[in-house]
Each structure stands twice: as structure tokens, then as C-alpha cells.
């Protein structure tokens, strides 16, 4: 579905990405993590053709992004930016959702059906002014207008930045729901708890190079990789790492609680 082969990218004279190769299958939920300036957002822009690789190739469903316009790739890729205000350009919620639909589809019945479905799915009022909504609601509206066109691939560039916990969970649950229905999701995120909770696969970037690519939990066990990328693992994973043997596979509060209870019951049984 998504294939990058030896991709390099330079901004002016500075090399931003060096020799990046990976393959993402349909229906995967992958997170790209790394410190600021590692090249995460650049990589996302290469995926939807906003940037063209200096060398190597980026293929989306067999289409080479180097030779395909971004507006054409928009039929397959939905891109959620960190700042929703750059995306919203209409005076009502309904017009905003219709904007993308009308660009990509001609069937009026289909458009009306999709609009109704998305409005009820997100609980928006059609006539609300988008610029009167809260930051989290505007981010949800930006996501709603992407989801309305049913993209096969969803790229999220720091979707939870500036959102409170409730708004963050709302956004991520919608994305998870889309992923369950078969949408491929690629997410750039600085919140390692969110990455652990939602992503199945993690790609770690450091200094423009891909230094790790694997299943989320196994990547969070690679302390040297995380250190190289200036990342801190989720708190529970750090605690488990410090507790040492017997706690290796613990990543969440639930797992930790379960293990502690299990160990204390075992100790009690031995004492009895």
C-alpha cells in the first residue's frame, strides 16, 4: 500500500531525511516518533506528495508521489494537520464538510448521505460557525471533513497537540474506529502514552534516519534506540524497566495492577 525506497529529502542544502525505506500494509496503524527536527512532518508531507523526494521513491497504491499531484492523491489520502485553522475555510460546519466532498465526488445523493452520516457521527450542528467552536471541536471538524471523503489512508500530523485529555481521547477513538473499518493510519505523535494505546507499529526517526521499525511494545523496550532518539518511554514502561525481572512485559496501569495483585496473592499463599 505505502512503499518508500531509499528516500532522501533536502530542504535547500540541508539534508532532512536520509535513505528511508519501509512498507506499510493496508489496515495498519503506525506511529512515527522522534524528537523535534527528526524529520517526522517532512516524512508525512512526502507521503501525500506535498513534498517530492530528492532521491528514491514513494509509492501509494502503486502511484509514484514524485509524478502525481497532491490534489490527485487526496482521493486516497486524508491529511490532518496539527493546526485545524489552516484547513477550515467555510462559514458553517456543513459547508466545511461538503467542501472536500464536492471536490472529490459528483453524485449529489452520495454527498448528502455522507454529510448526514458524518454530522451525526461527530454530533455537530450543521449551521454552527466553525470559528466559534473550541480548539478541540475545530480539530474534530477537520477530522470529520477528512473522514467524510472516506480516504483509504489517514495521515495525522500531531493530532492531539493542544487538546485536553477528553478531546484527545475523542479524536483518537474516532481514528481507531476508522482503522478497525480498514483505513490505514499513520500518525506523528509526541505523546508516548497515546502511541502505546493506539499504534500497532512504531517507526523511530532520529536525525533524519529511520533507526527502528517494529511492533510498538518491542520498540518501547529498546532503551538504546529511545535514548538515541531523545525519547522517554511511557511512564509505566519506565517503572517496569526499573523493577527489573518479572515486569518486562508491563506497559499499562492495568497490566501493572494485575501483576502486582497476582504477585501479592502468590506471596500470601506462600506465607499461608
Amino acid at each position: 500500500m505505502i512503499r518508500l525506497q531509499n528516500v532522501c529529502f533536502n530542504y535547500d542544502r540541508d539534508r532532512t531525511l536520509t535513505d528511508i525505506s519501509f512498507h506499510i500494509n493496508k489496515g495498519e496503524f503506525a506511529a512515527i516518533i522522534g524528537a523535534n527536527g527528526a524529520g517526522k512532518s517532512t516524512l508525512c508531507r512526502l507521503l501525500n506528495g506535498l513534498l517530492k523526494p530528492s532521491s528514491g521513491s514513494v509509492e501509494i497504491n502503486g502511484l509514484d508521489t514524485g509524478h502525481t499531484k497532491s490534489s490527485v492523491l487526496a482521493r486516497q489520502i486524508g491529511f490532518l494537520f496539527q493546526n485545524p485553522d489552516r484547513q477550515i475555510c467555510r462559514n458553517t460546519v456543513a459547508e466545511e464538510i461538503l467542501f472536500g466532498l464536492e471536490l472529490l465526488y459528483k453524485d449529489r445523493e452520495f454527498i448528502a448521505e455522507r454529510l448526514e452520516k458524518v454530522l451525526s457521527m461527530f454530533g455537530f450542528s450543521a449551521e454552527d460557525n466553525p470559528f466559534n467552536l473550541s480548539r478541540g471541536e475545530r480539530q474534530r471538524l477537520a477530522l470529520a471533513s477528512l473522514i467524510a471523503v472516506e480516504p483509504e489512508i489517514l495521515i495525522l500530523d500531531e493530532p492531539t497537540t493542544g487538546l485536553d485529555y477528553k478531546e484527545c481521547i475523542e479524536i483518537m477513538e474516532i481514528v481507531r474506529e476508522m482503522n478497525k473499518k480498514g483505513t490505514t493510519v499513520i500518525m506523528v505523535c509526541h505523546d508516548m502514552e497515546v502511541v502505546l494505546d493506539y499504534a500497532e507499529r512504531v517507526l523511530v526517526l532520529s536525525g533524519g534516519k529511520l533507526i527502528a521499525d517494529g511492533e510498538t511494545r518491542s520498540v518501547f523496550c529498546m532503551n538504546d534506540v529511545l535514548e538515541q532518539a531523545s525519547l522517554i518511554p511511557p511512564q509505566m514502561a519506565s517503572l517496569a524497566g526499573r523493577l527489573g525481572s518479572g515486569f518486562e512485559d508491563v506497559f499499562t496501569v492495568e497490566e501493572m495492577t494485575e501483576l502486582i495483585l497476582e504477585k501479592s496473592n502468590e506471596k500470601r499463599r506462600v506465607e499461608v
Binding site: 501525500n48 506535498l50 499531484k69 487526496a74 491529511f79 494537520f81 489552516r86 484547513q87 477528512l146
Partner: peptide, 19 residues
């Protein structure tokens, strides 16, 4: 730079600003 970011966001939605 804000305008170019807005243009990027709209092109990603399918607006043919890359024409």
C-alpha cells in the same frame, strides 16, 4: 509562510492549487 501552510492543507484536501 502561513498562506503556504494553508495552501498545503487545502491541496491535501483535493483543492487543485497545484494546477
Amino acid at each position: 509562510s502561513e498562506m503556504s501552510a494553508i495552501i498545503e492543507a487545502q491541496v491535501s484536501r483535493g483543492v487543485q492549487l497545484d494546477t
